[in-house]
Design a protein around this nucleic acid. Sequence first.
RNA 1: GCCGAUGUAGCUCAACGGUAGAGCAGCGGAUUUGUAAUCCGUUGGUUGGAGGUUCAAGUCCUCUCAUCGGCUCCA
Length: 646
Amino acid sequence: MAEEIKIILPDGSIKLFPKGASGEEVAKSISERLCKDAIAVKIDGELKDIYAPIEKDCQLKILTERDEESLDIYRHSTAHLLAHAVKELFPEAKIAIGPVIEDGFYYDFDRDVPFTPEDLEKIEKKMEEIARKGLPIRREELSWQEAKELFEKEKEPYKAELAYEKGQNGAVSIYRQGEFTDFCRGPHLSNTAKIKEGTFKLLSIAGAYWKGDEKNKMLQRIYGTSFLSKKDLQEHLKRIEEAKERDHRKLGKELDLFSVSEEIGGGLILWHPKGAMVRKIIEDFWRDEHLKNGYEFVYTPHVGRSTLWETSGHLDFYKENMYPSMEMEHQTFYAKPMNCPFHVMIYKSKHRSYRELPLRWAELGTVYRYEKSGVLHGLMRVRGFTQDDAHLFVPPDKMEEEVIGVINFTLKILKSFGFEDFTSYIATKPEKAVGEIQRWEDATKALQRAAEMAKISYEFDEGGGAFYGPKIDIKIKDALGRGWQLSTVQFDFNLPEKFGLEFIASDNKPHRPYMIHRALLGSLERFFGILIENFKGAFPLWLAPEQIRIMPIADRHIEYAEKLSAEFKSRNLRVSVDSRTEKVNYKIREAQMEKIPYMLIVGDKEVESGSVSVRTRSGGDKGSKKISEFLEDAELRIKNKEINLD
RNA sequence: GCCGAUGUAGCUCAACGGUAGAGCAGCGGAUUUGUAAUCCGUUGGUUGGAGGUUCAAGUCCUCUCAUCGGCUCCA
């Protein structure tokens, strides 16, 4: 009599099966449908292939489309299908790795001839063909030596290398489907036919270094994605389209906000009047809030002598990110990549007493950094940018309080721009670091406490801090659910040391202050880019470069329009009059495309009754309103920084 | 920096190795208009830059710059 094993299902029920039964059989015993839908199984919390024999009593869960883990398995099998198709079409291509990533998967290949977009179509067709064949996908376990030998025989050097590396902890596994064999941990779907037509798509081709190392050979990466249903894939493709529509580079051009000129150089931003207006409003707000929160402002130069950067250490650890030097009268200067040494020099300009600490010095400081040409990207990654920087010099006993204050201040500012969803990352001490251990621990703890007090979620990035101190980075989510890192609060144990910063405490002895760098918005360029994408160029009323456009219907209404305009301007509203001899439809269409929040149409009726006909960019015709009524409403929305107009 | 793609009028895009074109914008004129494009006319280009192949180059080749998708890196 065959030995029996007990299988506990998620609902608590227990079933008996002969030893060596598979998840597939268990599923079948429950229903045919479940068996057909099964993607993989979870045995005692471990993901396994659906056909894997079960050798002992266990808890078992059959994963279907409804389970979160299923999508990754599905994608991973799609990646194998991709590699399989490529090998059939281009046998000379060597396969490297093909993992699942956030929105899909990729597979790296080594092939002398580059893949073309037409190749992608061919590969996709071949994938469908292989899927339809319904090839069983089967796992095999073997020693790493066997695996290495196998892949060497198949002339797959990358796989052989992986077999050697991964094999150092014991046995490894491979998966076969038809003629195709891949080195893989699994689990996988049980059959290529389980990958349904219309659920996957190849998206792009890109270069990628083997193992992500610049020194290694560059391989060709094919990106793709797959979903458990056609509908999910379609939705994802729509999201990609939506992201394209929101691209700040596209909108920046259309709305005449900024540009980059080849003549000036890549990564150097020209802020056009409308973009500059938004920036001015952000800056004004930023300054006002800083004043309210106990900051003082400083201004510092754009360049500084090499001796400064030697003392600060930047020429040691940051040189490859700095613009090359400038020589002048036997002295060497560098454009600043950071503001901190300048602020430190202000600190050092006289003796500091504990009575004046903490000092909080803020500056919208423009810095220049050399970025490799290939990484430049619109406003998001540039070579000259303005940080909303500040440095805090804090006595140890006020350190924690100060950190909590900074985090709260940060969140308040971010919320003003309509961001609500925050996550944070606390980066702790890396192996190579400067500063006393005690200070690292105290500072890290303070960051953690601040995150807790502010009620934002946080994760530790162990060892992820800079060598000079721990930090907390705050990420926001935008309207499309994409994460962006904006704020950062970093301790610096290096500069106070290097520059010998001190303050005289009540014991009449010199002590070393804590120095904290922080930026709330990150840089004005990147922040502006994020705002553009988040709002799809339709800035909230308080930020809109032009808030109101008045549209007289005929020439005889211009006088009235101008009168209104003058009155609005005197109340600090940003308004213009479209007095061209054009139809109202024409004027509206233009204003609408410029995403102007309010359109006020004035004709005979309005002139007579002293009113305006209000139209919003989002809600269309709002009907006629008394001027005072309109003003009151608009001004309230501005004051409250409301995003909605209707 | 590396791999690949792209670069044509202000913008969006056409043009088999054989005279560079369209729509929009701009400009001129007509139209005095009620909630997303009124009509007519018209200007505009060393085809990113530099070399080369060819009787002939926007088109083919080399170099270079920029942009795009990634890699590495990052505010």
